[in-house]
Write a protein that binds this DNA or RNA. Structure first.
Lengths: 166, 166
DNA sequence: ACCAATGCGCAATTATCTTTCGCACTTGCG
DNA sequence: CGCAAGTGCGAAAGATAATTGCGCATTGGT
């Protein structure tokens, strides 16, 4: 994956598509100040370079019946690379685990999980997570309420940095 | 927001749009097994009902220069509702904070943060987060590497539940 | 059995995307 | 300095997709 040089227009495109991924190409072109064809070419380039990984509908999981969100801090017995990989692979296979990040510090992994209800989660916790070999400790915290949830890039910060460097 | 009754087709639509938010309506209709017009009508209904919150491009923040990801566990002095709201409002204003969740247990909030580099984050930590009134303790953990990151709904689990209930 | 309501599919219109072409600007070499 | 090659842009035309209106079938209730 080559490092693509991004100009102001590319960054605007990314910001707009992050805000509204279904925007039409003509609308996008209008907003970033160029005509449609070169705009589409830039988008394609951004997609092929991997800077745009994809587009996803943001589905309200709570309304769909996943009312429980839990963060789980996991510590392992062994931190050998093979063991770390093995645990990560397990996480990829568990549908209730939506995110898995390896951390520094005393905890090895943090997992973001969803579940339809508490008993479903407990079932997963005791039946799957805690019975996984090499798992030494798990501390879970229920999400009481969400105050902010905007995965993505803060483009305002990015612009500021670019202007400083330029 | 009324509770919408979802049939199999609606759930397929949600799953497909979560996987690929830019899919054309005709392609979507083909995949879920109906013709284009009723498919579009269903999508509009799902959007208006709030089940689909929006569509977003998934931008590779690391490639864009945000190489640092940090989870911050925050404890407050006072957990009065007004204080909780005040802290949440702060989080919404900080661009480096992408997620803020209120938790049960000893920690009051967990924050997912991004930053261009460590010093930027430290600047935010010492300059903003730690100087915020009512913040009692902050424990941060750097993300070493990400193993899974698929925000959204596990539709396979949902289908299984529906079939069991039906 | 009838009627209303809901949802699907067809067809036509409208909007959008894709492709091709030509032009202007920059870059590098003679 | 001049010229050729490469790159990016905008305009226009053909292809594709989205949207709307309407008729019909199915369902649920009377």
């Amino acid at each position: 994956m080559v490092a693509i040089r991004l100009d102001e227009i590319d960054r605007k495109i990314l910001a707009e598509l992050q805000a509204d991924g279904r925007m039409t190409n003509v609308e996008l072109a209008k907003r970033v100040g160029i005509s449609a064809p070169p705009c589409l070419r830039r988008v394609r380039t951004l997609e092929e370079s991997g800077l745009i990984r994809g587009y996803h509908a943001d589905v309200n999981s709570r309304e769909l019946g996943f009312e429980v969100q839990v963060f789980a801090m996991v510590g392992l017995e062994s931190q050998a690379e093979s063991e770390l990989n093995a645990f990560e692979e397990r996480c990829r296979e568990w549908p209730l685990v939506r995110e898995c990040h390896m951390l520094n510090g005393e905890v090895d992994f943090i997992l973001k999980c969803v579940a339809p209800d508490l008993s479903s989660f407990q079932q997963f916790l005791t039946g799957d997570l805690l019975t996984t070999p090499n798992v030494a400790s798990v501390k879970t915290s229920l999400v009481i309420r969400g105050a902010k949830d905007e995965p993505g890039v803060p483009f305002d910060v990015l612009e500021e940095r670019m202007n400083r460097t330029a």
